[in-house]
Amino acid sequence: MLYLILSVLVSASLIFIFKLFQKFNIHTFQAIVINYMVCVVVGLCFPGGADVLQPEIFTRTWAYFAMALGTIFILTFYLMALTTQKVGVTATSVAAKISLVIPVLFSLLVLKTSLKEYTLVNYVGMVAALAAIVMTSIRPRKNSQVKTSTAVALLLPLIIFLNSGIADSLINYTNQHHLQPDEAGQFTMLTFATSAGVGGLVLLYQLVILRSAFSRRSILAGIVLGVPNYFSIFFLILALSAFGNDGAFLYPVNNIGIILVGALGAVIFFHEKLSRLNLLGIGVAILALLLISYQEIIAYLN
């Protein structure tokens, strides 16, 4: 249970840090690039982390999937930062965590692997998940400090929803067809390294060609973001092991926790004004996750 709580708290803190970037006028993209470099450095401190530096890594069939995933990761991370600043903490956390609908459907329709028979209740939960994104994304207009059009407020969370779901589906596919259990650490490290590499190239283009200024504050901000970003995955893996690798139970519970902590933190620390529709959306998000995984929850409780 301790690792689950730590996973929830560390994951929610990432979205809070994005909000602080806005408050302290941090260059978001620069900090995100530094963040992935920090993830690589932290990973190198663990046994086997340096294996990703060996050229032989690219002989693995999963290497190119890891690089594709790393590219998606940095794009999604930047969109999460943008959405947090333009729409709010609550909408971002809901969109990112409710995206488990996509890998679930991918497993059912494409991979055709499932540990259970999906019922009407499960599919109702998936529809409710989409409704939750819309309800939490529509911001109160009167008290909003950042003026964002309704179209943008809806589009950004939906893109995060799709990108996060595609990333999880890609992990699912790679794990089933290409990855061996003892290669998980190398796969994660190559993913982070790719995110750092892609981000570094874009940042170099901005600095050299576009002559953008580099902010030294981005280094500290990237460290502050990178350490919890690495441990968000680290604690999630430990939590999975603690719960017998029962991801069908753990992921919904973990995501519900992040949505609740995100919403609570948004109100307490950032004074986000949540309308009745937003609050209803949070409730629908929790209900959606419960409906999607009610069989596993009942089985675990019994």
Score class of each variant (00 low, 15 high):
Met1Val: 11
Tyr3Arg: 00
Phe21Arg: 11
Phe24Leu: 11
Gln30Met: 08
Ala31Val: 07
Val40Arg: 13
Val40Glu: 00
Leu53Asn: 06
Gln54Pro: 03
Thr59Asn: 09
Arg60Cys: 05
Trp62Pro: 11
Ala63Trp: 03
Tyr64Asn: 13
Leu69Ser: 13
Leu69Gly: 11
Phe73Tyr: 14
Phe73Glu: 12
Leu75Met: 12
Gln85Val: 14
Gln85Cys: 06
Lys86Ala: 07
Gly88Met: 08
Val89Pro: 05
Ile98Cys: 06
Val104Tyr: 09
Leu115Val: 03
Lys116Met: 10
Glu117Met: 06
Tyr118His: 04
Leu120Arg: 02
Val121Phe: 15
Ala129Tyr: 07
Ile133Lys: 04
Ile138His: 10
Arg139Asp: 04
Arg141Thr: 12
Val146Asn: 05
Lys147Tyr: 11
Thr150His: 09
Pro157Arg: 11
Gly165Ala: 04
Ile166Gln: 05
Ile166Gly: 06
Ile171Gln: 09
Ile171Thr: 06
Asp182Lys: 12
Gln186Asp: 01
Phe192Glu: 02
Gly197Val: 06
Gly199Thr: 09
Val202Asp: 00
Leu203Tyr: 07
Leu203Glu: 15
Leu204Lys: 08
Leu207Trp: 01
Ile209Cys: 05
Leu210Tyr: 02
Leu220Ala: 13
Gly222Ser: 06
Gly226Gln: 04
Pro228Leu: 02
Phe235Ala: 10
Ile237Glu: 09
Leu240Trp: 01
Phe243Lys: 14
Phe243Ile: 03
Asn245Met: 13
Gly247Met: 09
Leu250Asp: 00
Tyr251Gln: 13
Asn255Ile: 11
Gly262Val: 03
Ala263His: 04
Ile268Leu: 12
Phe270Pro: 13
His271Phe: 00
Gly281Gln: 05
Val284Lys: 08
Ala288Leu: 07
Leu289Gln: 11
Gln295Tyr: 04
